[in-house]
Design a protein around this nucleic acid. Sequence first.
DNA 1: CCAATAGTGTCTATTAGACAGTATTTC
DNA 2: GAAATACTGTCTAATAGACACTATTGG
Lengths: 250, 250
Amino acid sequence: MTESESESKFLKSYNPKDFDSPLCTVDMAIIAVEAGELKVLLVQRSEHPHKGCWALPGGFADLKRDNSIEATAHRKLAEKTGIKTPYLEQVESIGNAMRDPRGWSITLLYFALIDFEALSIKEGAVTGSEQTQWMSIHDALKCELAFDHALLLRKAINRLRNKTRYTALPISLMPETFTLTELQTMFELILGTSLQKKSFRRRLEASGLLIGSGDMRSTARRPAALFKRSDSFKSDHVFPGLLDVEIESL
Amino acid sequence: MTESESESKFLKSYNPKDFDSPLCTVDMAIIAVEAGELKVLLVQRSEHPHKGCWALPGGFADLKRDNSIEATAHRKLAEKTGIKTPYLEQVESIGNAMRDPRGWSITLLYFALIDFEALSIKEGAVTGSEQTQWMSIHDALKCELAFDHALLLRKAINRLRNKTRYTALPISLMPETFTLTELQTMFELILGTSLQKKSFRRRLEASGLLIGSGDMRSTARRPAALFKRSDSFKSDHVFPGLLDVEIESL
DNA sequence: CCAATAGTGTCTATTAGACAGTATTTC
DNA sequence: GAAATACTGTCTAATAGACACTATTGG
């Protein structure tokens, strides 16, 4: 018997269910800004365990439909928000015997940043019999989420905050066009501090990530130039230096 | 029936094996420096699939013995190297339908940095009937590792290189005491470039991570001061600025 | 003209790069 | 003293912080 015959014979008799395997899920911290607050999308669990509790959206990978875990994450996101091209990043995987009463369980945590205005499914939507809600990060961390989802949410927010110090990531939370002041306000909201206007504008100018749209936002006072993402835009662009900001770790 | 009775009834009738679940493994890129080269610990697979191929050490979590995936990673590391307190960091999780011929599979990738001299199990050890080997990173990336392990190794090395630009991580690869020149050589080995001696010493001095051991290394020429980790040492200390170095992404 | 917001000029502080210069050892 | 390696002095370059200043709008 050749090696390859031996291998295919082995594979034929192999049944993954013969082994103890952890439960394996994908969970998502889907983040947007609405009404001047950082919010996260929560789902009310319609099944045990933790029935009735608010939780991060997520669930088991559908091995028949999803070719990869990113595909699972994209599918979940599209189901909940209708958005197909978000900023999506894997944060971390947490696995242990205690986090789920059904037994040893692993979750792959992703976070997604979306422009709230681009949502096709908004407030209070009911998807597949599950109630969903946008809750402020602050409230969500206090409100006893299901499983260890408070921990997961903290990990996602910490990642967002850290990356906001040296990347252009928050631009993913902005609409098509926006003013520099609006963008700075978004950075400040995430970091929880105020930033120097000059420094902020300098680094964006130097990055070449944005380009003037030609239009102005006319308000009660002096109008501000509107910008949009340039051709070379990448949301994980790394600026040359760090923003010098304390981050309170959640 | 109360909610909690309802939940415990649900849990009693719940069987994880009723659901399709991916195979779930932990894989480790265990890295050390020997003979002036970055090396990775490889294991020759004694079973199908990819029998006979070199692979990153790893395997299924033992749900009975391991309380968490970090525990699994630590256990695997101790089994292969005898080392209990390495630098250990989760890199990423990769999951898809193609990476393992047995079916949909997820791996949680860790990387560990160890001081080669501290190894209790060295060259050519046979652990549990498996042959192991320290191979240079360069060779390992060329030699057709099992599964997608070449990809995993690239991800681990890229992470190590990136972090070497702004953290003190390579110190985890050093013995108890060492000279600054030896440490700089370690950084240069990882980054694949030479560094400015003055800049290098300045940032270490300012960090307070190291403290003179009092001894000197006596060589053929002027002796060099020996340093050791100070009380405030943390291997993931972040320096204030980046080393200005191109990194060729593997 | 005033209030308010948009946007700029410019000085300082910090930190890395460059590289030449000094120090200490063995032979 | 020569060779080699350890270590330092110091100038430049890049980039963020601070903050006052000018510009442009509506009323």
